[in-house]
Design a protein around this nucleic acid. Structure first.
Ligand SMILES: [Mn+2]
Ligand SMILES: [Mn+2]
Ligand SMILES: [Zn+2]
Ligand SMILES: [Zn+2]
Lengths: 151, 151
DNA sequence: TCCCTAGTTGATACTTTGTCTCAACAGAAT
DNA sequence: ATTCTGTTGAGACAAAGTATCAACTAGGGA
């Protein structure tokens, strides 16, 4: 059974668990940011997240939102793209692996599931001494709409 | 024979040729930005590019630099990363295909050559009606230095 | 070669996005 | 209770990017 609601809840819980495991405290502010991220489908800008957090927790400061986003990014459970939707957007991704098709003209963004980099991760880890936590593949081009109208 | 100088010059010429092919005018300002990008190895921030452009062409405005970066991004000959080096950086990439290993802690960035997505591009193009121009793969993790000092 | 014009530009004000500082606060440990 | 350390909000600040618009120019056609 596939249930988006549960998927989102899982993502939120996994993100918080990851913070906890890294030794960070689970505060109401951090929970609020994670829930804001999980409360909407797709990508959100920092501003959208801030607004959403403020709805339920008006006292949460702007700096805390940015600090939490940074923390989640570093923890590998949040990804961001500055090309998708033509602005910087954030989205929870507990697996740390995500793949997009992005129209460089209008910003239209499509997610796809094929993961071609999992094998590669191990090789890179060994070669460069990195401890790999995830990856993001962005494929660029023009969408069908934008193709129709350009040179 | 491998010659970095020539590689860079090629990158610059290919980028300008691409703009020309798309019907954009080749102005001294655009040439200046492309040459600034080609004049240094690796990634540069918008500010660094602006400074470099100003050295030879002090009259070029800040807006033109940003406008040209945007144009090159859309043309598929420039890539950017907001995680590499822990700030947004730009780099000429005429092929439109680039791959990085990025430390989410300190921003250390390593380029690698394995390209695992070329086959995928065709499939995605067909499935979603996109005209694919390139891709960028970012693999995230902790570098050896950052691994040594954390929990 | 000269015109014409759509595309481009510089200056600068402005918005958006993200960071810094620091005193106050809150959990956890003792 | 006391201490300790991580976290917070406010708001000043800085960086990054955009909008406006009159002036200018690249480049195709006469
Ligand atoms: Mn997505
Ligand atoms: Mn690179
Ligand atoms: Zn499009
Ligand atoms: Zn590092």
């Amino acid at each position: 059974m596939h249930d988006c609601r549960n998927e989102k809840e899982d993502a939120a819980e996994l993100a918080l668990a990851k913070l906890r495991n890294l030794g960070h405290r689970i505060t109401v502010q951090r929970v609020a940011v994670v829930e804001a991220l999980a409360s909407a489908p797709g990508h959100q800008s920092a501003e959208e997240i801030l607004v959403r957090v403020s709805e339920l927790h008006p006292s949460v400061g702007r700096a805390s939102v940015f600090r939490t986003l940074q923390l989640l990014l570093r923890a590998g459970v949040l990804l961001s793209s500055s090309r998708a939707e033509n602005r910087t957007t954030y989205f929870l991704c507990p697996s740390g692996r995500h793949h997009h098709l992005i129209c460089t003209q209008c910003g239209r963004t499509v997610a796809f599931d094929e993961c071609v980099a999992e094998d590669l991760e191990g090789a890179l880890a060994k070669r460069y001494g990195f401890c790999v936590s995830g990856h993001q593949l962005e494929v660029f081009g023009h969408c069908s709409d934008c193709n129709a109208f350009d040179s």
